[in-house]
């Protein structure tokens, strides 16, 4: 493990990253986000009762995506992390899109 210590010291940007850590995010921010999440949950439950025909799924998924991005950005700190984390996340997101699109190229056009 000592090896990693010395290796890391060769990276100047690491220290910058760690200094970022020194400043914790306020409890208040977390509680606000939590309130928003609870409100969105209530909203999606209520909206599901309204008949929106084909849009039901879309609305439910948009709300779910909003909630997920709140969790990822604030609770999981992606908003405050290095750029590389965002690149990684977009690779994962892109993979998801590829899997769904190409599978549906079959499923949607099948008869």
């Amino acid at each position: 493990m000592e090896s990693q210590e010395t290796n890391v010291q060769t990276y100047s940007h690491d220290h910058a990253a760690e200094s970022k850590h020194a400043e914790p995010i306020g409890y208040g921010t977390y509680i606000l986000v939590w309130l928003a999440l609870i409100a969105l949950t209530a909203l999606t439950a209520v909206v599901s009762g309204v008949n929106l025909a084909a849009f039901t799924v879309v609305v439910a998924l948009v709300i779910a995506l909003t909630k997920a991005s709140l969790v990822v950005n604030i609770f999981m700190h992606i908003k405050f992390e290095d750029f590389i984390f965002k690149i990684f996340l977009s690779i994962a997101g892109f993979t998801l899109i590829v899997i769904f699109t190409l599978t549906f190229a079959d499923v949607y056009f099948r008869r």
Partner: peptide
């Protein structure tokens, strides 16, 4: 395998 023609084209 029984995919749609569209999928055959794309792939």
């Amino acid at each position: 395998a029984g995919m749609s023609t569209t999928a055959q084209f794309v792939f």
